[in-house]
Simulated assay, not measured.
Amino acid sequence: MTIRRSDMNPIMAPNQVVASNPDWEVIGVFNAGVAKYKDEVILLLRVAERPLNDDPTVYLTPLYDAASDRMTVRSIPRTDDIDFSDVRVIKTPAQNYLTSISHFRVARSKDGIRFEIDDKPTILPGSMYESYGIEDPRMTQIGDIYYITYSAISEYGICTAMMTTGDFVSFERQGNVFHPDNKDVVIFPEPIGGKYYSLHRPSCSHYGQPVMWIAESSDLLQWGNHRFIAGVRDGLWDEGRIGASAVPFLIEEGWLEIYHGADKNNRYCVGAMLLKKDEPWKVIARSELPFMQPEQRFEVDGFFGNVVFPCGALVEGNIVKLYYGASDTYVGYAEVPLDLIKASLKKED
């Protein structure tokens, strides 16, 4: 049993995507939600862009201005009191900004490998809570509707918002479903005991750590009864942070959740946890070692390297088809035997 990465990896790269503005450049296409629609595989891509800049004395940060409903650019002088140590963030004494802004773009494929990417953005930032961009969509099909959860980034923090679609042509925003700071929200694909469930990852600023919780809902919009279900583990591959990645899917033993974890050096790997079928807030087993880790060049080197980060998977028989972000730059594809994932699980005490 081995993971089979596509010989065409990375299956998507920034140079395959047309920038939304002629004065901007695409620096990443990654962390895509995935769904089957009719006879096609649909990816909802996160596309990260930034303004072209030939002035070494300033940094240009892109922003969405909700009041005017347009993209803008702010110029920030490169002074000694500004921290540029993280390539993703500009830390000023007043507030932090992102070095790029993300939108979503649909890509379609008949074979799940060769995709046609829309020439223009499918979904741009659209509210005051999305002024720094929209990121990392996950898509859950319930009936004929696809529920898309995503991170909405702004000066107010990281909310999780939701939109719905029935055809991947028109989309309806449903607003913020989790307040800041919260991300990595995935919705279970069917009700359990008459209630809907979602996994989420609140950020605890004082006492806690970035760990996984579960919530329940009667209408997919109002979420409550929040409970902790799984934490980080000292000395292991997921000692720094964890979060849900793919939509959970049901196997004979229970709900299988493919999740991401990072160590204290921000190396992101992929593992799984098995949740009880009728009580999904109970963890039965969990990967002691990751079943997938950054190995290939495009996974190790990039805008933010040493990252494999799935936001979606398709399950066909004993094969899990994993679409994953690599080094915050590319989309990769891998086929993982279900038995390999199950073999990585160790029963919880």
Rank of each mutant, 00 (worst) to 15 (best):
Met1Leu: 11
Thr2Phe: 09
Ile3Gln: 07
Ile3Asp: 03
Arg5Gly: 01
Met12Asn: 02
Pro14Tyr: 13
Pro14Glu: 10
Pro14Thr: 04
Asn15Ile: 01
Asn15Met: 02
Val17Tyr: 01
Pro22Ser: 04
Trp24Gly: 07
Trp24Asp: 05
Glu25Tyr: 01
Gly28Trp: 00
Gly28Met: 00
Lys36His: 11
Lys38Ala: 15
Val41Asn: 11
Arg46Ile: 03
Val47Tyr: 00
Glu49Trp: 11
Arg50Trp: 09
Tyr59Cys: 06
Leu60Phe: 14
Asp65Leu: 11
Asp65Gly: 08
Ala67Thr: 13
Ala67Pro: 00
Ser68Lys: 12
Met71Ile: 13
Val73Ser: 05
Val73Cys: 14
Arg74Tyr: 05
Ile76Glu: 02
Pro77Met: 12
Arg78Gly: 05
Asp80His: 07
Asp80Pro: 02
Asp80Thr: 11
Ile82Leu: 06
Asp83Gln: 12
Asp86Ala: 06
Asp86Gln: 09
Val89Glu: 09
Lys91Tyr: 03
Ala94Phe: 13
Ala94Gln: 15
Arg108Gln: 02
Ser109Ile: 03
Asp111Ala: 02
Gly112Asn: 13
Ile113Val: 14
Arg114Tyr: 08
Glu116Cys: 02
Asp118Trp: 08
Thr122Val: 05
Ile123Pro: 01
Ile123Trp: 04
Ser131Lys: 07
Tyr132Trp: 12
Gly133Leu: 12
Ile134Val: 15
Ile134Asp: 09
Glu135Thr: 03
Met139Asp: 04
Thr140Asp: 02
Gln141Thr: 01
Asp144Tyr: 06
Ser151Glu: 11
Ala152Asn: 13
Ala152Glu: 13
Ile153Lys: 09
Met162Asp: 06
Met162Phe: 05
Gly166Trp: 07
Asp167Ala: 01
Val169Pro: 00
Ser170Arg: 14
Phe171Ala: 03
Phe171Leu: 02
Gly175His: 09
Val177Asn: 11
Phe178His: 07
Lys183Leu: 06
Lys183Tyr: 10
Asp184Cys: 00
Val186Leu: 07
Val186Met: 04
Ile187Glu: 10
Ile192Asp: 11
Ile192Gln: 13
Pro202Gly: 10
Cys204Glu: 11
Gly208Pro: 04
Ile214Lys: 11
Ser218His: 10
Leu220Arg: 15
Leu220Gly: 03
Trp223His: 05
Asn225Arg: 12
Gly231Asn: 06
Arg233Tyr: 06
Arg233Trp: 14
Arg233Pro: 01
Asp238Phe: 10
Glu239Asn: 06
Gly240Lys: 00
Gly243Cys: 06
Val247Trp: 07
Val247Ile: 15
Phe249Thr: 15
Phe249Asp: 10
Glu252Cys: 01
Glu253Met: 07
Glu253Pro: 05
Trp255Ile: 06
Ala262Phe: 00
Asn266Thr: 04
Asn266Ala: 09
Arg267Pro: 00
Arg267Phe: 01
Tyr268Leu: 05
Tyr268Gly: 02
Val270Gly: 02
Ala272Phe: 08
Met273Phe: 07
Leu275Phe: 06
Lys276Gln: 12
Lys277Trp: 03
Asp278Pro: 03
Glu279Ser: 10
Trp281Gln: 08
Lys282Tyr: 09
Ile284Thr: 03
Pro290Leu: 10
Pro290Arg: 14
Phe291Gly: 03
Pro294Cys: 03
Gln296Leu: 15
Arg297Met: 13
Glu299Met: 09
Phe303Arg: 04
Gly305Asp: 14
Phe309Cys: 00
Gly312His: 02
Glu316Ser: 14
Gly317Thr: 15
Leu322Gln: 12
Tyr324Phe: 15
Ala326Tyr: 02
Thr329Asp: 00
Pro337Val: 13
Ile341Ala: 13
Lys342Arg: 14
Lys342Glu: 13
Ser344Ile: 09
Glu348Leu: 15
